[in-house]
């Protein structure tokens, strides 16, 4: 253990000094953590990501949005109280004393190519692209490591049963971090299958918005160009006037009967200042 301890006492003292100057109100305690086996003392309130930076790591891999949306910082760790491997997103997980931690910089996941227009939205089509999906033994290892707490195995099972809608909904919050695939004994890459399923479902099984199609057609015929053109040539004062009086949908007393701008002729004539 002593060999792993690269931080001497002076380092710890300095760490605290830095923090005291930054946060004058309370002096946070530090805890030891093992980053890829090397011991560092870090403030106990930090996320794993910030703890790595605090220790002096300059991250290139294993860091992305820093807010739990991009899946770049999949992390595995163990704590002394358990033999079990724990997981989390480094940016969303607070350090624990004596944790052994490493980020997963990359996972070699197969991503097949396809033309979303041409594939039918069926389980068979998904299986033709990713045949390994049929190897799922329902062990639930994937679900247990999902940092988003998704029912990952159910995504696969629903897909196999042809229920792409359910699979799309279950996988909606997936950040594609790769942890599920890293634990799968059947070598399934769940998140690549899930995005295919979501795209197929939304492309082929959800009817296109008719309202949107109508608007696109109207625009192709330049239906609203006249009004946009009128707005473009107004001076700031005229614009301010029209802007200030525009009714807001849903506000008390507002009943909208038209999608035309209420042109005030006086403004247009330039008589109103």
């Amino acid at each position: 253990m002593a060999n792993n301890d690269i931080s001497d006492n002076s380092n710890v003292v300095q760490s605290n000094e830095v923090l005291v100057t930054e946060q004058t109100t309370s002096k946070p305690t530090t805890v030891p953590i093992f980053i890829m086996g090397k011991r560092y003392h870090v403030p106990s309130t930090l996320t794993i990501l910030k703890a790595l930076e605090y220790a002096g790591y300059r991250l290139l891999r294993g860091v992305g949005c820093r807010a739990g949306f991009c899946g770049a910082c999949a992390t595995v760790y163990k704590t002394p109280d358990s033999y079990k491997l724990k997981v989390g997103l480094a940016c969303q997980t607070v350090v624990e004393p004596e944790m052994w931690v490493t980020e997963l910089p990359f996972f070699p996941a197969v991503k097949k190519t396809y033309d979303i227009e041409k594939i039918p939205a069926t389980a068979e089509a998904v299986m033709a692209i990713y045949p390994e999906i049929a190897r799922c033994v329902a062990c639930n290892s994937c679900t247990r490591v999902c940092p988003q707490d998704l029912e990952v195995m159910d995504i696969i099972q629903e897909t196999l049963h042809g229920n792409l809608k359910k699979a799309a909904e279950l996988s909606f919050d997936c950040v594609m971090c790769g942890l599920c695939a890293s634990r799968c004994p059947a070598e399934i890459v769940h998140y690549n299958i899930a995005i295919l399923v979501r795209r197929l479902y939304n492309r082929h099984l959800v009817p296109n918005s008719l309202e949107l199609a109508v608007r696109v057609e109207e625009l192709a015929e330049n239906k609203y160009q006249n009004e946009v053109d009128r707005l473009k040539v107004l001076d700031e004062e005229q614009l301010r006037k029209i802007y200030s009086v525009r009714p807001r949908e849903g506000s008390p007393g507002v009943e909208l009967k038209t999608n035309r701008i209420d042109w005030d002729d006086e403004i247009m004539k330039g008589n109103v200042k």
């Binding site: 918005s209 609203y224 009004e227 707005l231 949908e249 999608n259 035309r260």
Partner: peptide, 8 residues
């Protein structure tokens, strides 16, 4: 895209 809205 809604009927009460327009690009303008």
């Amino acid at each position: 895209v809604t009927p009460v809205d327009s690009p303008a």
